[in-house]
Design a protein around this nucleic acid. Structure first.
Lengths: 208, 208
DNA sequence: GGCTGGTTCAAACGATCGTTTGAGCATACG
DNA sequence: CGTATGCTCAAACGATCGTTTGAACCAGCC
């Protein structure tokens, strides 16, 4: 069905691109290395040669996007964290905007779908990988939320962050897929989406 | 690893129970019919004999729970829909409480996990099945939300409902799994959870 | 008893899975 | 030129997949 993804680029990059697409469409188990390498236009053995195993390939698909994404998130957070005039909107924007930006670079929107899948899977190996490598990001954001919402108990705060995370993950996994009206520019659409997500999250986090 | 689920009951029920558990743990592709029938303590061929195929079994796992769940939701909604004194809290309670109740019947909490998986998978066959059979439920709730939030545009309302749905699906897929403090009764825990979800959803739907 | 329809069973079907192998190819360096 | 080194390739490995088959079993009914 799907033929040739990314006919240019190195073998590793072609594999990563095809993996992102097929993992998003059919899941980690559903997408086979044969479908994947056929779509990438590379030999079947190339996956094990370059990545070692299918599981390592999955991790690399995450690493390639999350390293950059979370770096941008932390960079944006660092600019505002601790400042007295910082608002909840600012912190949420630091978390949300880098993800929406990614969704409009090359085929980054597919990645948010892959991320949503990983979120729904309660696979221990994958969860541990994500927690070990990117757990500190959520920890820093949580600390800033706690500072801006001192009236909330720890338990209450965790509940709300969990719910917001679920909402954002779900929403962003569909973003970039929906048909956009032709008279709305991509940038305006992204800005509108950001506003929806941010306002919703502010309301969910800070309600009395 | 997993041995014998539901050693009593009919063959069909044993299969459905084991399927719910393994689909929740390993996904629809990840759980094989051999693991499944071994856990159920039935013969491998029993799945195809009773259900026709693995895909039909998946549908039956959904049907068994969703028929009852959505019937209860609509029943609760019917009691309050259209009434002048009905609040957003009431409508959200009609949607949320039946799901939390299910999570504390037998192994119903596993089902919410399966549902969350189906939500993350963008598989067309499964989505169509759910939409055809249970789409009217969300449509009725949406109509009532629209009535109670007349100030919102259609587009704005859909955005908020989508975000709330994502939050609830995520939260309920983890509910029943978390370790509960021993000094908190099950009923109190469920009520506390319901309050969290309802208040969050009200804030997300009705913020200015 | 004999027969029937519903159910279970072990065994096998072809297909597909992730992974490994060893030969072949290209480029770079002595 | 010779020979390493990094990479690609077709082919095969054993394992496991969903599904099918045909015999065996077992109630209930004539």
């Amino acid at each position: 069905m799907t033929l040739l993804v990314n006919s240019s680029g190195s073998t590793k990059d072609r594999i990563l691109g095809a993996a992102e697409l097929l993992f998003a469409q059919r899941g980690f188990d559903g997408a086979s290395l044969r479908q994947l390498t056929a779509a990438a236009g590379v030999n079947l053995a190339a996956v094990n040669y370059h990545f070692g195993s299918k599981e390592k390939l999955v991790e690399e698909v995450f690493r390639r996007r999350l390293d950059a994404l979370n770096a941008r998130r932390l960079e944006a957070l660092a600019k505002i964290a601790g400042a007295p005039e910082t608002t909840l909107e600012d912190v949420l924007a630091a978390y949300i905007r880098p993800a929406l930006d990614l969704s409009h670079e090359d085929s980054g929107s597919l990645f948010m779908r892959v991320l949503a899948r990983a979120f729904a899977e309660h696979d221990d190996t994958l969860r541990q990988f994500l927690s070990e490598n990117y757990g500190h990001v959520m920890r820093q954001f949580t600390a800033e939320f706690a500072r801006l919402l001192p009236q909330l108990s720890r338990q209450e705060l965790y509940w709300r962050i969990d719910l917001v995370t679920g909402a954002l993950t779900h929403a962003m996994s569909g973003f970039g897929m929906i048909q956009r009206k032709h008279d709305v520019s991509e940038l305006a659409h992204r800005e509108q989406t950001a506003q929806h997500l941010i306002r919703f999250s502010v309301a969910g986090l800070s309600h009395p």
